[in-house]
Amino acid sequence: MGITLDKVEKKAPELLSLAKTAASAIDTARLNGQRAKVALVLDYSGSMRKEYKSGAMQRLTETILALGVHLDDDGEIDLFTFDSSARHEGTVTLGNFRDVIAKIVAKRHMGTTNYAAAFRAVLDYFKLAPKSGGGFFRKSTGYSAVDARDGQPVLAVFLTDGSPDSKAEAVTEITRASYAPVFWQFLSIGAENIAFLQRLDDLEGRYVDNADYKPVRDVDRTKPEDLYEMVLDEYPGWLDDQRRRGHIR
């Protein structure tokens, strides 16, 4: 099970309200008892500079950590950033979350927007990259479906403010990722919807529908309960499908 609210109050009292809101959202989505690894995948391209400087990305990290407190056995989340490349920045916990974004900003430079690298980084880190298979999947796509490690899927919350460097590569990688037990919740910030994210949401030719897109506009003006509702909107249906296929417990 995840971390109790008593432990949140003791180790990170400033997150207690968020953790209670997340618990309510999980209950509404009927996900009580469903374990998952939670990944936060943040755009670190140059156009995101203002969002990091303002503290918006730190606050978003705290909001998603409050969700991970309940979904992850260890009550933590994995943080990834992507620009021209992508990497795992480490695990965010109740003990180290307070300055986690400041440490990232201090040690790396911003680049462009490589979605494909982000998709690969998450699959590689969790060792869920699909492999060439046999039978129908081998013939039609070159991939075979991968079962969740320890029966636990990954919920990847992916936030960006723009389209990728290579749309074709991103399409290839999200299609490949559909054979892994990872659900991608795409969120966008900025005044305009990102048409390419909607294209990925509706993409044909995937093993399963493994993504949803919601425009957030401004994360700091979005109520936590509304953000959790977005993140958990299509995820339960994907879980049901994965469970029917035998890829998760």
Rank of each mutant, 00 (worst) to 15 (best):
G46D: 08
A121E: 04
T93F: 15
W184K: 11
G246C: 06
G133S: 10
P224Y: 05
D220L: 08
M230T: 06
I3C: 03
F186E: 05
D124G: 04
F137T: 09
M1T: 02
T222N: 03
S140I: 10
A22R: 02
S144I: 11
R244V: 06
L42S: 02
G151W: 01
E9P: 10
V146H: 00
V182F: 09
L232P: 04
G134T: 11
T21N: 12
A66Q: 03
R243T: 05
T4P: 14
N193S: 15
I77L: 04
E89I: 10
G151E: 05
H247Q: 13
D78S: 06
F137N: 09
V41N: 01
R120V: 07
A121M: 04
I174H: 02
A170P: 13
S163L: 14
K50T: 05
P215V: 02
R98K: 15
P181V: 00
F183Q: 03
R249G: 01
D218Y: 07
D150R: 06
S132G: 08
T21R: 10
S47V: 05
I101H: 04
G151C: 13
R245P: 09
A12W: 14
I77V: 04
F82W: 08
F136Q: 08
S144D: 15
S85P: 05
K214N: 08
F183C: 05
G90L: 12
N114Q: 10
G246D: 08
V216C: 07
V219C: 03
Y115H: 09
E204M: 10
E169Q: 11
K214W: 07
D209N: 06
L203T: 07
V146N: 00
E173T: 05
M1Y: 03
I101L: 13
S132R: 07
A195C: 14
G205S: 08
G133L: 06
T21W: 11
V100N: 09
A39V: 01
D212M: 09
Y235I: 04
K103S: 14
K214T: 11
H247F: 15
S144C: 12
N32M: 08
V171K: 10
S178G: 04
Q58T: 09
K103P: 12
L239E: 02
H88I: 06
V122H: 02
V41Q: 01
A211L: 04
R244F: 12
R108E: 15
A102K: 14
I64M: 06
F196L: 15
I64E: 01
G246P: 07
E229I: 11
L16N: 13
V100F: 12
I77D: 00
D74N: 01
S178R: 01
F119Q: 03
A106R: 12
V8G: 08
K20T: 12
E89N: 10
M110D: 11
K11H: 15
L65I: 06
G111M: 04
N32Q: 11
D99P: 12
A118H: 06
E234K: 13
T160M: 11
N193I: 14
D226Y: 10
K11C: 15
F82R: 01
K53G: 07
R87C: 10
V69F: 01
S163T: 13
V216M: 07
E225M: 11
D74G: 00
I248S: 00
E14G: 14
L15I: 14
T160V: 14
R244W: 14
G111V: 03
Q58D: 09
L232V: 05
I104T: 05
A117I: 05
H70I: 00
D99Q: 15
A12K: 11
L15W: 11
L79K: 01
